[in-house]
Amino acid sequence: MNIYKPDLMDVLEVNQHTADIKSVKIAFKDKSKQQDFAFRVGQFGIFSAFGYGESTFNICSSSTWKDYAEFCFRRTGKVTEALWRIEPGDTIGFRGPYGNHYPTDEWEGKNLIFIGGGIAMPPIRCAIWYALENREKYGRITIVYGARTVGDLVYRDELDKWAGYKDVKVIRCVDPGGETPDWDGEVGFVPAVLEKASVPADNSVALVIGPPIMIKFSLPVLSKMGLADKDIYTSLENRMKCGVGKCGRCNAGPVYVCKEGPVFNLEQLKRLPEDY
């Protein structure tokens, strides 16, 4: 088998979230493969625009949804520039699922705190939907999501939907200066908003994904809230090419992020050198 050869996927739907972020729903051209496709939330795929190359994105749909998989990207380079132009009916390539996943089984019976920044909403969104679809297995859910400006928030419609669920609290924020006159969310940086929100942290796990600077300042807040290192999770975004532990690009200290990651808890992360 050629491990580098992707499956061909039909583009079902394209949604534009911000000036430079779109999400895409795809399904295997081979219907039986779509039926058999199984992954765990937190895993990633390698997506191709033929003629331009491959890019790595989280699979941001819930693993409980069987009709399609979804990914979300920011238009920022050659491949994403090409993906920006795709329309329903087009074909793209997909390899995966790769990497480890969020330990959603271990999280059962716990309260969940999701913290995201900007384009990092998609890799959290899959876990949020997974938890909502298995609502009875999890306790309170708190979602803190921030972006630079109101226009940079992705999956805004879903934020409102989530807020409607029982025992789900959604805190939205934008960086100072990023608010609009009708903005009814918080204004401030994610770590500060998180601290101010005084989220109860008993029997909780946190998943925090965002720009390195946001993660860096959110971690001490979570620790202060009383979360143990083993209960704070993140997903590393190291650059990848092969996704299967060969190309040598995603090393962070002793780990191959594509195989042993991308999901790490803070306890594991503290043992890694700062190479991400």
Partner: peptide, 30 residues
């Protein structure tokens, strides 16, 4: 190694080329 496309949107091939961790773009994120 690196994996890149050679050709255009009409046709071509996906290839892998040797790469090296000494290059400044090797680990640069998007």
């Amino acid at each position: 190694f690196d994996i890149v496309d050679e050709g255009n949107a009409a046709g071509g091939e996906r290839v892998r080329n040797w790469d090296a961790c000494q290059f400044c773009l090797f680990t640069k994120h998007a």
